[in-house]
């Protein structure tokens, strides 16, 4: 089958490429764009390790064809850090609160938490757990992940107040 011309914004930059329509977004990101932050975990839309932000929605990029994402704006974990290269508050708080052990789920976890906090800047613990229920972690038991997200919410809202 013929390859199609794909154009999208990835982590703020314009990307153009040729790809088969059946290429999954996760494979396009990892293999054609060398963005290996999002991981292939289960490959069955359960684990959330492949989570990226697509037009302001958290999606599992193992279950989206590159053709469907044509024209969209995509953010991966590589695009979460601040422009000057310093870590995003969420990344800092995952480090601070030890919100990871092996780290395999972390890119998806942080990318999901990023969107969660955009939509709900002050989530309760229950809301955090519900909000990250599409992301599996087999190491931590989630306790420190929830702590890290809550701490990031505190820092981000504190920053906003300070700026006002």
């Amino acid at each position: 089958m013929a390859k199609m011309h794909v154009k999208m914004t990835v982590n703020g930059g314009e990307v153009e490429a040729l790809a088969e329509p059946r290429t999954l977004l996760i494979h396009f990101l990892r293999e054609q764009l060398s963005l290996t932050g999002p991981h292939v975990g289960c490959d069955t839309s359960h684990c959330g390790a492949c989570t990226v932000d697509l037009d302001g929605k958290s999606v599992k990029s193992c279950t989206v064809f590159v053709a469907q994402a044509n024209g969209a704006s995509v953010t991966t974990i590589e695009g979460i850090a601040n422009a000057d290269g310093t870590l995003h508050v969420l990344q800092e708080m995952f480090r601070e609160h030890h919100g990871l052990q092996c780290g395999f789920c972390t890119p998806g976890m942080i990318t999901r938490a990023y969107r969660l906090l955009q939509e709900n800047p002050n989530p309760t613990e229950t809301e955090i757990r519900y909000g990250i229920s599409g992301n599996l972690c087999r190491c931590t038991g989630y306790q420190n992940i929830v702590k890290a997200i809550r701490a990031a919410a505190d820092q981000l809202s504190g920053k906003k107040e300070a700026a006002e």
């Binding site: 839309s45 959330g48 989570t51 929605k57 958290s58 999606v59 599992k60 279950t63 989206v64 999901r112 969660l116 519900y130 909000g131 990250i132 229920s133 599409g134």
Partner: peptide, 9 residues
């Protein structure tokens, strides 16, 4: 239904 990511789609 499913999980947050899937409910967006």
């Amino acid at each position: 239904i499913a999980d947050p990511q899937i409910r967006y789609c």
